[in-house]
Design a protein around this nucleic acid. Structure first.
Length: 362
DNA sequence: TCTGGGGTCCTAGGACCC
DNA sequence: TCTGGGGTCCTAGGACCC
């Protein structure tokens, strides 16, 4: 929190691929171009239980957006083209794009499959050159992958991310340091990173709707309501952020899988079976990554969407499937009352340590 | 309208140790 | 017989991101 105003202003780019998954689908299947395309769960004629992952702009015309229940999307536009998604392909394409982007900046950080931050402070002399560079990136990605992206250029990651979202698709938005306050002020608070629906509602009750409102409010009020987060919100609203491109490159903290039943169930053997399968998948990944774990957490969501987690920390580190399944079953048995129907179950391991790390201790 | 699946970080209370 | 303060770990839950 102390390094935000020190040193020279940075020049940071945020590159955001336009409706990435559905754009790849359109590229691979040109015949669907121009039609609404929705990537996500199987809508099953309106009875599917998943959500929309991405959709193209034609689908957005119908009010469909990512995160929306796919059953609702189906009601809005049953004639859209619904695709489950080819994640292996998306990963491959993403890898190629990231390789291109990495070549443009000294400091690089990918964020998910379809976004990346580039700190080009030491690669260009000023914002004008950064704009040239951004145009070069857009051309190269279009030429190599036949895909468009939107780019924001700003003095830090926070503002660059908001800027890339400002004009889409195929946009380029430049916010130099002296324009940050004016750019942010009229935007709704939800545009800010870490302010989602719940926080926006709480802010609205305080009469805070725009980022400008948030910037001009007394910090002590925010501290009172949101603790340390309040201070961060206020800093962010002023466009101040010390987050470095490439920072937070920590080790993996947990590995987990979860799964929703096609229909809610209170059949204990069906639940245990599903948890066993999830344990196997978690165990497989932990083994592949040569990780030991100590804490096991199960997640149970009932038909009313009430979600509970229960965890158990073992007295030892392990990578044995038996230990994982045993802990999972114990947790399930002690917590599951047969009277409730279950929608989703999940298994996660945390408190991780690499096997290599253990060797050096031995 | 009915809400996936992969994660991370934060908070807060209680246990336990010194 | 009553009771400090600091630190760390464990557990549960919640908000948020892509």
């Amino acid at each position: 929190m102390t390094d935000f105003c020190s040193g020279n202003p940075h020049i940071v780019l945020h590159v955001d691929m336009d409706h990435f998954f559905s754009a790849v689908e359109e590229r691979e299947h040109p015949q669907i171009k121009g039609h609404p395309v929705v990537v996500g769960a199987d809508p099953k004629r309106g009875t599917g239980r998943g959500v929309v992952k991405t959709c193209n702009y034609e689908a957005r015309e119908f009010g469909i957006h990512s995160g929306m229940p796919v059953s609702k999307a189906w009601r809005l536009c049953p004639d859209a083209i619904y695709v489950r998604g080819n994640y292996r392909l998306y990963k491959e394409v993403s890898k190629k794009i990231m390789t291109v982007l990495r070549g443009y900046a000294t400091e690089f950080q990918s964020w998910g499959l379809d976004e990346a931050f580039l700190d080009v402070t030491s690669d260009v002399h000023n914002f004008r050159e950064a704009v040239k560079l951004a145009e070069g990136i857009k051309h190269e990605i279009l030429w190599r992958e036949r895909l468009t992206c939107s780019i924001g250029i700003a003095p830090n990651k926070l503002v660059a991310k908001i800027a890339s979202d400002y004009r889409k698709p195929d946009g380029l938005t430049i916010v130099p340091e002296n324009a940050v306050a004016k750019f942010l002020a009229p935007l709704p608070v939800q545009r800010m990173l870490w302010i989602g629906e719940k926080t926006a509602m709480r802010l609205k009750k305080l009469g805070i709707r725009t980022i400008g409102d948030l910037a001009s409010v007394d910090v002590s009020l925010l501290t009172e309501r949101f603790g340390v987060l309040g201070v961060r919100f206020h800093q962010h609203a002023l466009g101040i952020s010390g987050a470095k491109v490439g920072g937070r490159k920590g080790r993996r903290k947990s590995i987990g899988h979860e799964s929703t039943f096609a229909t809610d169930t209170n059949n204990i053997s069906r639940i245990v079976q599903r948890l066993d399968d999830l344990c196997q998948r978690v165990h497989e990944r932990a083994t592949k990554q040569r990780l030991l774990f100590k804490t096991v957490t199960i997640k149970i969501r009932d038909q009313d969407f009430n979600t509970h987690t229960h965890s158990k920390t073992l007295p030892f580190f392990t990578n044995q499937l038996q230990d994982l399944q045993k802990a999972t079953r114990t947790l399930t048995r002690s917590r599951f009352q047969g009277d409730q129907r279950i929608r989703l179950v999940g298994v996660r391991v945390s408190n991780l340590k690499s096997i290599a790390g253990q060797r050096t201790l031995a």
